[in-house]
Amino acid sequence: MELGVIFAGFGGQGILLAGKVLARAGMDQGLEVTWLPSYGPEMRGGTANCTVVLADQPIGSPIVDAPRALVAMNLPSLDRFEPRVAAEGLIVYNGSLIPRDPKREDVQGIPVPVNDIARELGNARVINMVALGALVRASGVVPLEAVVAAMAREMRERGRDRLIEINRQALERGFNEAEKLLGDR
C-alpha cells in the first residue's frame, strides 16, 4: 500500500497543518510517512501545497507524479493538480469556493462546502480539518480516531488546547459529509 496525497490551497487555509496531521496519524498507525511542503516564495500570500505519502514499506520518493488523492481548497489548486491525479483516484474539493466539478471522468469527485461548514461550526479557520475529515472517509487510509488523536496532540503542542474540540467537530463533519456522498462504498 502506498498513498500519495496532495493538499493545495491559498496560504492561510491550513494546508500544511492538514497534511501534517494526516502524516502524524499515519505514523501513529505504524505506517511510513513523508510530508513535503512547497516552501518557495509562493507561500507568501499565494498558493501553498504539501505532499503526504503514507505507505506500509519504506518510502523512496517524497515527490509523487500521480497522487491517489487531491485535496483542493481553491480553484487554482484544482486547475493545477487535477490533471496529475491517478486514474481511479479521488479529489476532495472545496464546494464553497470552487464553482466547477472536476473535468476528469476517471476520478471520484467529492465536493465538500468546507467554508460553509466551518462557519456553521463557528470558526472559519477549521476548514482544513473539515477537508481532512472528508479525505479520511474517502481514502480509508487511517481511522478517524487516529486523526482526531493526532490533531489533538498537535494542538496541545502548539498551546492551543482550547481549539481541540472545534477541530474534532470539524473532522467529524467532513467525515460525515463524505459519508453522505459515498454511502456504503
Binding site: 505514523m27 511510513e32 510517512v33 513523508t34 510530508w35 511542503p37 518510502i59
Partner: peptide, 10 residues
C-alpha cells in the same frame, strides 16, 4: 539540500 531540510519524516 532544501528538500530534506524542509520535509518531515518519522
Amino acid at each position: 539540500d532544501g528538500m530534506l531540510g524542509q520535509m518531515m519524516e518519522p
